[in-house]
């Protein structure tokens, strides 16, 4: 297989987890741990698929996927932010719910072929050797994914909104005392995370596979969650991690095809092994660990006074 094709496959494999992970990063930066990424992805996958089939437009499909993912995440938001339910348990429940719910709406869509998502036309740029196929031969969502990462990075770093988001994730009591609306900010972050996960799911069902099958996310949501930790909550590292983890998936498939005797199981568990390794590395220095993870991650906020 030519390197151009390998890289192309890698980027396609990386985009769903990149989208889901950047959304989860924003959610976690606000101090909320949503373990329902897998569920939001698969609901996004079926919503996007269904809307694209019914309307005939992949673009509308992606919009529908974002809405579907966001709607599901807001169930989590209301439960954890207003009803103060435990975030870990609620997130796991959301995943299970999402898997079942998507299978239910997806019943009529098995075996249907979705409208093709066109690649962007860059004209002569695509014809440049190597650079052309690698950089300028993708569909819009690949670039949207990178743009979202850039946007999140710039927002967190340079804008007041980003600073307030970080502040809420760092110390919700202090943010409340200063008059910031902790719950509202967190709900927005949760919805953003859900929308991104939905986009990631739709990328699977509309571009990568493209088809609808039950449970088609097959653990991509969990890889996205691991990816956030791997990236130690830094947006650009999400891109690196997504390509790394995506590359492993592509490698896995290609090795299987080539008949090389590397256990597939070893490769499929490698993203998690790498994440655990990164976790050990960042927590070996106590001070640095405390600075990378949002301090209030997973804690319940209950406004006093």
């Amino acid at each position: 297989m030519s390197p151009e094709l390998l890289i192309d496959a890698l980027i396609i494999a990386a985009t769903p987890i990149l989208l889901a992970a950047i959304g989860e990063l924003v959610t976690e930066k606000s101090g909320v741990l949503n373990l329902g990424v897998e569920g939001m992805m698969i609901v996004g996958a079926i919503c996007g698929f269904a809307v694209a089939i019914e309307s005939g437009s992949p673009a509308l499909g992606f919009a529908g996927a974002a809405l579907g993912g966001a709607a599901l995440s807001l169930i989590f938001g209301v439960l954890t932010q207003y009803l103060l339910s435990n975030q870990v348990a609620t997130g796991l429940a959301l995943t299970l719910f999402g898997l079942g719910f998507s299978a239910m709406i997806g019943q009529g869509y098995v075996g249907v072929v979705p409208p093709a998502t066109p690649k962007l036309d860059f004209g002569p740029l695509t014809d440049i050797p190597f650079v052309g196929p690698v950089l300028f031969n993708h569909d819009l969502m690949v670039y949207v994914g990178i743009a979202i990462v850039a946007g999140v990075w710039a927002t967190l770093r340079y804008t007041r909104a980003g600073m307030i988001l970080r502040a809420v994730g760092e110390n919700h009591d202090a943010a409340h005392a200063l008059g910031y609306k902790v719950i509202r900010i967190r709900l927005l972050a949760i919805a953003f995370g859900g929308a991104c996960a939905g986009l990631g799911g739709a990328y699977l069902s509309l571009v990568r596979v493209p088809q609808w099958t039950e449970g088609m996310t097959a653990g991509a949501g969990w890889i996205a969650l691991a990816l956030v930790v791997f990236a130690s909550w830094k947006p650009w590292r999400i891109v690196i991690g997504a390509w790394l983890f995506g590359g492993i998936t592509v490698l896995q498939l290609n090795l299987q095809v080539a008949g090389v005797k590397v256990p597939v199981e070893l490769l499929s568990m490698s993203p998690y092994l790498i994440t655990i390794l990164v976790l050990v590395l960042i927590s070996s220095d106590r001070r640095r660990a405390s600075l990378s993870a949002p301090a209030e991650l997973g804690r319940v906020f209950h406004a006093a006074g």
């Binding site: 007041r160 600073m163 502040a167 110390n171 200063l178 405390s290 600075l291």
Partner: peptide, 17 residues
């Protein structure tokens, strides 16, 4: 009990208030 954010810089903390 200080209403400060440890992972943020002095200027950011001031700005938030």
């Amino acid at each position: 009990h200080f209403s400060l954010f440890e992972a943020l810089s002095v200027a950011e903390n001031v700005s938030l208030g």
